[in-house]
Amino acid sequence: MGYIKEPKGVDFIIQSRPLTDKDKQEISRHIAGYKAKHSKKQTVKPKSKQLA
């Protein structure tokens, strides 16, 4: 992806629409689900075979 330079004399202003309470709840629910799924879980190491 390249860098897009603004032309001289032109300003790009980007304004997002405000989030509704429903949108905020959905985003929070998604983030919580992602964190629960991708959190570091304690893993049990398999027992290694002992050489006699």
Rank of each mutant, 00 (worst) to 15 (best):
T20L: 09
K41S: 03
I14E: 12
D21P: 02
D21I: 04
H38E: 13
K35H: 06
F12Q: 11
M1A: 11
K47H: 11
S48T: 11
I14K: 10
R17C: 07
S16Y: 05
P7A: 08
S39V: 05
L19S: 06
Q15S: 11
K5L: 10
S16A: 12
K41C: 01
V10K: 07
I4H: 01
Q42N: 07
R17D: 13
K49Q: 15
P7D: 03
Y34I: 13
V10D: 03
T20A: 06
P18R: 08
H38N: 15
K24G: 00
G2H: 05
T43W: 11
K24R: 10
S39M: 10
G33F: 04
H38F: 15
R17P: 03
Y34N: 09
M1H: 04
Q15E: 15
A32H: 01
Y3E: 10
Y3D: 09
K49W: 14
S28A: 11
A36R: 12
Q50P: 01
Q42T: 08
G9I: 08
K35T: 04
D11G: 02
I13M: 12
T20V: 07
P46T: 08
K22N: 12
S39H: 10
Q25Y: 00
R17T: 13
Y34A: 13
Y34P: 00
K8L: 14
M1C: 08
K47Q: 14
D23L: 06
K22C: 05
L19H: 04
S28R: 05
T20W: 05
H38T: 14
Y3L: 14
Q25C: 00
A32W: 00
S39F: 02
K5G: 00
L19Q: 08
K8F: 09
S39I: 08
F12E: 12
D11A: 13
K47C: 10
T43R: 13
S39G: 02
R17L: 14
K35Q: 11
Q25G: 00
I27Y: 02
E26G: 00
K8S: 12
I14S: 09
I27E: 03
D11H: 05
F12R: 14
S28W: 01
E26Y: 00
R29I: 04
H38K: 13
H38R: 13
M1D: 10
D21V: 05
R29D: 12
D11P: 00
P18D: 11
P18T: 08
D23I: 02
H30Y: 14
K5Y: 07
V10I: 15
G2Y: 06
Y34R: 11
K24N: 01
K41N: 01
Y3V: 12
I14G: 02
P46Q: 14
I27C: 00
D11K: 10
V44W: 05
K5W: 03
D23G: 01
I31D: 01
V10S: 00
V44D: 06
K45S: 11
F12G: 01
I13Q: 12
E6G: 02
Q42A: 08
T43F: 09
H30E: 15
P46D: 10
H30F: 15
I13E: 15
R17N: 14
E26Q: 04
I31A: 01
K37E: 15
K40T: 07
Y3P: 00
K5I: 09
Y34K: 13
V44H: 04
I4E: 05
E26N: 04
R17H: 12
T43V: 14
Q50R: 09
Q50H: 03
R29C: 00
S39Y: 03
D21H: 02
